[in-house]
Design a protein around this nucleic acid. Structure first.
Lengths: 197, 197
DNA sequence: TACATTTGCAAGCAAATACTTACTTATGTT
DNA sequence: AACATAAGTAAGTATTTGCTTGCAAATGTA
């Protein structure tokens, strides 16, 4: 009987959630299937997590501490705004491609039970991204490289559509979808919006 | 005992699905809750639908025959491309606001069980919108009002982010979210992308 | 009025759900 | 070697799930 620490098992279980969502769909993330995927018994899952909801919360916290913290660093770097916006977008796209299933989870959890704690966490993830993009755009305008007449709120709303569309395409078109150059292509469109007229 | 025809009951049941999703979350669309919302017994639901899955399929078919057919009409109207693009976007936004819960349903069904029939229906809904927008943009370029160097595929990908972001905002910000002028604001951003340089 | 059809419901079904219990076994420490 | 602790399991729990059954009553039609 191979034994592993709670730290390691927690990571394995969280990873299994994303694997199952991406491969088999949301319907199949039962604790029974989760256990099977990891190769442990169902009871062991509850040795390492208090509840199934705690697993989901854990994954969402990972996104906050992983992706969002990375994006903050990019935003605060001492680089021109256009470079930072490009990096911000590409980092997000890369993260979503490498963690397939995460947007489905975020979206479904957001819609699952109108749970306020969950909604706050998801609001943070969504609005952080939006605000960081807004910060960079604001910097670019201040630096004189972008159009000062545009509405930052509107541009960031449109910006937030990019990662979400990416996920819809990933679900619907599966392996066929081309993420190569995806961030470059979307970045160029954003540039045209920000461009001075 | 008040009795209604299957036609009417089917509409009531489908409407109840969207109401519950929007008000209480995805978790609560059990046949028991559905029956309670409509004011009938659980058994009666299965008098009017063969299965719960058939209810979902019915709603998705409604979107195809309702929204998508409307959008097709707009696309084929004899109007300038810019007017049609505006109408297309506004019709979509209006539909989503009036049918709150529908995007959650579409998205969750798409991710629920990797069911090919369902995925085909959803692919049709997604790609139809994308193609109709592409058709209008292509017309606008042919008419000489828009930039012929842009990638229609890229612009329509970005375009598809708009209705989806709208929904995320509706879920996360609830009643606070301002849909007023939403389509105008997004339309103006699209125009800037399409603009000749 | 007679009768077939449609719509309704209460009660029940097997299967699945998240989670618990009682107990075993491996592992690190003294 | 002795022991405490952490990690594991099989077999349960109560509850919920989508769906069925048998029968009653409303409705349309002759």
């Amino acid at each position: 009987m191979l034994r592993k620490s709670t730290d390691i098992r927690q990571e394995e279980i969280k990873r299994a959630v994303l694997t199952i969502i991406h491969r088999d769909g949301l319907k199949n993330i039962s604790t029974k299937n989760l256990a099977k995927e990891v190769g442990i018994s169902e009871g062991t899952i509850f040795r390492h997590f208090q509840s199934k909801n705690d697993i989901m919360m854990g994954i969402i916290d990972d996104v906050s501490q992983g992706l969002i913290e990375e994006l903050k660093k990019i935003t605060l770097l001492d680089k021109p705004a256009d470079k930072r916006l490009f990096d911000l977008l590409c980092k997000t796209v890369t993260y979503l491609v490498e963690n397939k299933g995460i947007t489905i989870l975020l979206f479904s959890e957001a819609s699952y039970d109108n749970d306020t704690v969950m909604l706050k966490k998801l609001n943070y993830i969504f609005n952080s991204q939006k605000q960081l993009a807004g910060k960079i755009i604001s910097d670019g305008i201040a630096a004189g490289i972008w159009d000062k007449t545009i509405s930052i709120e509107d541009v960031t709303t449109l910006y937030m559509g990019i990662p979400i569309t990416l996920n819809i395409e990933m679900i619907l078109n599966g392996e066929k979808f081309q993420y190569k150059n995806f961030c470059n292509r979307m970045y160029n469109l954003m540039l045209k919006i920000l461009m001075k007229t």
